[in-house]
Structures are given as structure tokens and as C-alpha cells.
């Protein structure tokens, strides 16, 4: 009896862990990717579903320059390159010692962000707003 109970508990733990992992890595297609550096949003949220041409964003010494022609500035050093395609992003280069962020590969959404801890670069994902109408136009 005792060993039965033990195995039930073990099974329960395994199921729980796999459920948590599944939830964390479950990639519901996100519409927005947010790139953070030192805890601050580094560039405007990227609408992944509106990316027509793949491009990359280089974050170096607190300065980002994107091959989409957009640049912005913030925080500390470190080198990261984030590639952005229709519907997905990946960390394609990083000078961090372990390169854990590089192993995530392409990510299209989910609640698990792409994280480069040493360089303090984080990419999170947001869902879709159901009403995409434009209320006004400026410029």
C-alpha cells in the first residue's frame, strides 16, 4: 500500500510539472512582442502579425538600431541581436557567457519570455486586441 501511495504522489508531481511546463511554453500566437532592456521597454511593441520583411534589432551598449530604420537608446552594455519575422522572434546573437537565450530558438508567443539574464534583455509577448479599428489619424 505504501509503495502505491508513493507512486501516486510521484505521478502527481510529474503530471503537475509537465502541466506547468506546458503552460509556460505553450505558444499561443501573440500579436505583439515587447523588447525590454534593464526592465524598460526598449522600443515600441512590435506587431508580429504586421511584419512583412524580416529584420533584426541590435542592442549594443544601451543603443538599439534596427534594420527597419528605427533606433532608440537606454541602459547598460551587452550585445544582443534579436531577429524578427512574421509572427515570431528569436535571439540570434548574444555575448552573454552561457547563451541560454540563444537556445530558445524561434518563439511566437506564450507567457514564457525570451530572457538574456546577463545582459538584462527580455522579450515578452502580448495577445490580440479584438477591436482593431482606427479611431483617428494624425500626421
Amino acid at each position: 500500500m505504501k509503495s502505491n501511495k508513493f507512486w501516486i504522489i510521484v505521478l502527481g508531481i510529474i503530471v503537475t510539472i509537465s502541466a506547468v511546463v506546458a503552460v509556460l511554453f505553450w505558444q499561443v500566437q501573440a500579436s505583439y512582442a515587447n523588447i525590454y532592456k534593464d526592465g524598460e521597454l526598449f522600443r515600441p511593441p512590435v506587431n508580429l502579425l504586421a511584419v512583412t520583411e524580416p529584420y533584426s534589432v541590435m542592442i549594443y551598449d544601451g543603443f538599439s538600431s534596427g534594420s527597419d530604420g528605427l533606433s532608440s537608446q537606454s541602459g547598460a552594455d551587452g550585445l544582443n541581436v534579436i531577429e524578427i519575422e512574421y509572427g515570431r522572434v528569436r535571439m540570434s546573437e548574444s555575448n552573454c557567457p552561457l547563451g541560454i537565450c540563444l537556445h530558445r530558438g524561434w518563439v511566437s508567443g506564450g507567457i514564457m519570455p525570451v530572457v538574456c539574464l546577463p545582459n538584462r534583455v527580455v522579450v515578452t509577448f502580448d495577445g490580440v486586441s479584438d477591436d482593431n479599428r482606427i479611431d483617428a489619424v494624425v500626421g
Binding site: L41, P44, L70, S72
Partner: peptide, 18 residues
Amino acid sequence: DGEILVIGDMRMLTIGDM
């Protein structure tokens, strides 16, 4: 030259919605 420069708190901004 076509470059877009963003300055300040950009949380409410989405670039790339053509």
C-alpha cells in the same frame, strides 16, 4: 532619410502597422 526615431515612454506605441 526615412529613419524613425522614438524618444521617451513608448509603451503605448506600436510601430509596423502598415
